[in-house]
Write a protein that binds this DNA or RNA. Structure first.
Length: 920
RNA sequence: GGACCCUUAGCUCAGUUGGUUAGAGCGUUUCCUUGACAUGGAAAAGGUCACUGGUUCGAGUCCAGUAGGGUCCACCA
């Protein structure tokens, strides 16, 4: 076995082990027979994506769950993959084309798609390689891509099925149109942002009364050519006489448009009169429908104004057009006023440009299983962590609108609908759509393709990823499902994702799971609770926080505040990064990223490394190859208080980690492990071991205990920091002579471990454990006595102790340890030593034997301060105990505690006071 | 406009069902390169728990309100 190096150098170790794990096929799911399954599907990153800090958090959490499940002996499966990300990917390739001065239409659909596939072969899925650098233990042999043939078939199957049962229809409606991507978007893909602009006040001349005007306010004068009416509130006395008359449109092709009355108008807002432009505003569209008004679309799909906008505006880009429109209105005298104005404007989330409400033909989905999806979460069949997201989820489902699932893109799943050649798809009625002679809907297309033309649109990417939890398990093909272990792994166990995609993805997956899993003949049938439980896609959903920078701002490319994960990995190691990010990720809150915390993760790894190094340097002490071998080396008859205490802490920490992980409180689990390892083990047990190891009697058992503790610590830590724990596992021989991987070991839970110890006769003694606490305080006070006099480096200082027999027995048994821990030459029992620096400890009054040179003034100050604090505390406790109500109403245990505490405080006070008097 | 979250040490956060003197990490100060680790060790300083009321023998913790910060949802031109 090579000697462990002085400091931990993660990079080579990590590369080495990841390769070894892959070679050993360590992440492939083992045979499920007789094991409880545990499965996770990765939230598929965009195939265009690169690893960012959010992925680091998200995937580390999943890896922790999966690796822990493996250590618990479960059949653990983590399915990886990527999402074809329609708009984003198409945009990337279009950008490449633009450099070649080409547009996708120059290539045509087929060539363009070839080009996209080419791109994805060469550059797509980089992120999966990056996840390997992070240590993600996905079963890579099961990597899925939403555009793979098998997955695509699942997507089309779902479409055909929903269409057949009337959930999907085609309709001309107002949609959110992205002029940059030239496609419709769903409501969820639109984000509202405040935008600075102007409010224009424009006057419309009454057609039958020249010289008289009706004024309206608008932020979008370029749409005036699309105006078809002016609306006022039916009960607005100011305009009552005008309703039914006409005004002249002040811009665009000349026209007279009616004044209508509609209750949707807010009398208080603006002038009280509203221009109605049905083609460019959702609310106006509704008004237009009510009054049977036409819709005049003045925009091209790319957001430039078309010929209907009139010669002055046609051809202009929409914001240019707005400026120009204002100028034209001003020139004609129709512009009354123009003032700066800020309002909320919908932006395309992807392209980051304002969307246009636009009237187009699209495919829509009436969501299936809405009620069951609500019930699944409301009734706790699916548990959200933190729980409060339940409300957000339910609220969205309560107000759910049909989903626009068609996209005017080429990259995506082309909608499996064929129109009979010669038919105009935009004139088909619902009845036509259901007529197989006119419209063909199937997976494989019509038998006589020459007579049909396939729908041009593709599906929204989310309309494929909503099938992820079961499409990745072979659905709908029976044989594939069998092979993929659908019966074992569905429903999956836990979903780890961000709350930002609760609507996009989580809610839709739940509905899809409820709708599509289970026997085909039960589609759409009411579900029993048992059926519901079998169909939900996951049992638990853990929502991570959003990572922000130290100032609380969102991570963004433009701010440049987003740390580069691969750089962090090379700087701190993947383990350091993992440990650090988990330790700062509080449950349910956003995370303030601080690189110092990642450094802390690296430091912890180094601490772990060196503790193991110390163990190795202490020499071999017997068989380390498995837990039984280590247990058999333990000699309970030789246990001292510290042995009891460290074993007690090991059990307590094991229990605590179990508890935290069960509640998805990862940072608390990491904190518990940190405190245990650093404070209990390194700062105390390893230090006292240095005395114990000097003695032949206690040496072997002490090393066995170290092995037991280190082994358990490595197992507890492995899910969080897999690389270093694997390396140390092997270095210390816990993998046996064959070097079996740490993943092949089984972690014992706290009660199993306690049972194993009892089996060896090791019964932990509370009193001994408690005595170590006293000893720690005692040592600490001894160190403080030295430090206050700048004697910390002096090891020739003697201590004297006035103590009862019981206390002295504890201290005397630990003489060698005390000398090492406090840096003392010795500790003797003595009577009171007047005038010497002293501290009142739980084990007696401790004096620093300073042979004369005492700064009496400083001592007096220190003791007086101590006395003041004691007095204050005593007063508080006395006041409580003399309160009649407290004594009669508080539980006896609390009262007893207070009495006991008071007695202790008084004793301590008396002793402190005596010391002070003795100073003279 | 509606819903939710946050406010505890200089910073980032813990604080279980209300119960001794409110904790940790980082940062700060002082001391220490002793044979695991200076990516370290030791000691210390630092908090009217945002504010105001209420419930209670007892409130950081429960309730109501106020202020500040944040997130999501919502068609006011």
């Amino acid at each position: 076995m090579p000697e462990i190096t002085k400091s931990y150098e993660p990079n080579d170790v990590e590369r080495k082990w990841y390769a070894a794990w892959l070679k050993a096929d360590a992440f492939a799911c083992r045979d499920a027979a007789g094991r409880k399954p545990y499965s996770i599907v990765i939230p598929p990153p965009n195939v265009t994506g690169v690893l960012h800090i959010g992925h680091v958090l998200n995937n580390t959490l999943q890896d922790i769950l999966i690796r822990r499940a493996r250590l618990e002996g479960r059949s653990a499966l983590w399915i990886p993959g990527t999402d074809h990300a329609g708009i984003a990917t198409q945009a990337v390739v279009e950008r490449e084309l633009r450099k070649e001065k080409k547009h996708r239409t120059d290539l045509g659909r087929e060539k363009f798609l070839e080009r996209v596939w080419q791109w994805r072969e060469q550059k797509g899925g980089v992120i999966l390689e990056q996840l390997k650098a992070l240590g993600a233990s996905c079963d890579w042999s099961r990597t899925h891509f939403t555009m793979d043939p098998g997955y695509s078939r699942s997507v089309l199957t779902a479409f055909v099925d929903l269409f057949g049962r009337g959930h999907i229809y085609r309709g001309k409606r107002m949609v959110n149109w992205c002029p940059a991507s030239r496609t419709a978007l769903s409501d969820e893909e639109v984000i509202m942002k405040p935008a600075k602009g102007f409010m224009y006040q424009v006057r419309y001349e009454l057609a039958d009364e020249p010289g008289r005007y009706l004024e309206v306010k608008t932020t979008r004068p370029e749409t005036i050519p699309g105006d078809v009416a002016i609306a006022v509130h039916p009960e607005d006395a100011r305009f009552a006489a005008l309703v039914g008359r006409k005004v002249r449109r002040p811009l665009g092709p000349p026209a007279e448009i009616p004044i209508v009355a509609d209750a949707a108008v807010d009398r208080e807002f603006g002038t009280g009169a509203l221009k109605i432009t049905p083609a460019h505003d959702k609310a106006d569209f509704e008004v237009g429908r009510r009054h049977d008004l036409p819709a005049i679309d003045v925009l091209h799909p790319d957001g430039t104004l078309n010929e209907l906008a009139g010669p002055g505006l046609a051809g202009l880009e929409r914001f240019e057009g707005r400026k120009r429109a204002a100028e034209l209105l001003k020139d004609s005298g129709a512009l009354v006023k123009q003032e700066p104005y800020e309002n909320n404007v919908g932006y395309s989330e992807r392209a980051n440009v304002p969307i246009e409400p636009r009237l187009t033909w699209q495919w829509w989905l009436r969501y299936p299983r809405v009620e069951e999806a609500k019930a699944a979460v409301r009734d706790g069949h699916i548990r959200f962590h933190p729980e409060r997201w339940t409300k957000v989820y339910l609220h969205w489902l309560e107000n759910i609108q049909d989903w626009c699932i068609s996209r005017q893109l080429w990259w995506g799943h082309r909608i499996p609908v064929w129109y009979r050649r010669g038919l105009d798809r935009d004139t088909l009625s619902e009845a036509d759509l259901a007529d197989p002679a006119k419209v063909h809907v199937s997976l494989d297309g019509p038998a006589d393709p020459e007579n049909w033309i396939q729908e041009e649109d593709v599906l929204d990417t989310w309309a494929s990823s909503w099938l992820w939890p079961f499409a990745t398990l072979g659905w709908p093909d029976r044989a594939e499902m069998e092979e993929a272990g659908y019966g074992t792994f569905y429903p999956t166990s836990t979903l780890v994702t961000g709350p930002d995609i609760i609507f996009f993805w989580v809610a839709r997956m739940i509905m899809a799971g409820l709708e599509f899993t289970g026997p085909e003949e039960e589609r759409g049938c009411p579900l029993t609770e048992a059926q519901l439980l079998a169909r939900i896609p996951f049992r638990d959903v853990y929502f991570t926080g959003i990572i922000r920078d130290a100032q609380g701002r969102k991570m963004s490319k433009s701010l440049g505040n987003s740390p580069e994960p691969l750089e962090l990995i090379s700087k701190y190691g993947a383990d350091g990064l993992r440990f650090g990010i988990i330790s700062i990720a509080p449950q349910g809150l956003d995370i303030h990223f601080q690189e110092e915390r990642i450094e802390g993760g690296k430091n912890f790894c180094n601490k772990l490394w060196n503790a193991c190094r110390f163990r190795q340097m202490s020499g071999p002490a017997g068989d380390n190859s498995d837990l039984d071998a280590i247990l058999s080396r333990i000699e309970p008859a030789r246990f001292d208080a510290d042995d009891h205490a460290i074993l007690d802490r090991t059990l307590a920490t094991t229990r605590e980690v179990e508890r935290c992980l069960a509640g998805f409180d990862f940072s608390a689990a990491v904190q518990a492990m940190y405190a245990f390892f650093w404070n209990d083990f390194c700062d105390w047990y390893v230090e006292v071991s240095k005395a114990k190891l000097q003695e032949a009697d206690s040496r072997d058992s002490c090393l066995a205990i170290q092995d037991l503790v280190l082994r358990q610590a490595l197992l507890l830590l492995h899910p969080v920091i897999p690389f270093i724990t694997e390396e140390l596992w092997q270095q210390l021989g816990y993998g046996g002579p064959a070097g079996s991987l740490i993943e092949e070991a089984r972690i014992l839970n706290a009660s199993q471990l306690a049972e194993a110890l009892r089996g060896r006769g090791a019964v932990l003694d509370r009193a001994q454990v408690a005595s170590v606490e006293s000893m720690k305080t005692f040592v600490s006070q001894a160190r403080a006595l030295k430090a206050e006099r700048n004697l910390a480096s002096r090891r020739d200082v003697k201590f004297l102790l006035t103590a009862g027999d019981a206390e002295w027995a504890i201290v005397d048994a630990a003489q060698a340890k005390f000398q090492r821990m406090a840096g003392a030459a010795g500790l003797e029992r003595s009577g009171a030593v007047d005038g010497a620096p002293a501290a009142v400890t739980p084990l007696g009054t401790l004096y620093l034997d300073l042979a004369g040179s005492v700064d009496t003034g400083a001592e007096r100050t220190r003791l007086t301060k101590e006395l003041t604090a004691l007095d204050k505390h005593i007063a508080g406790t006395e006041a409580r105990l003399s309160n009649e109500a407290f004594v009669s109403k508080a539980p006896p245990a609390v009262i007893d505690g207070a009495r006991k505490q008071l007695a202790e405080l008084q004793a301590k006070r008396a002793e402190t006071d005596r010391l002070l008097q003795a100073l003279g």
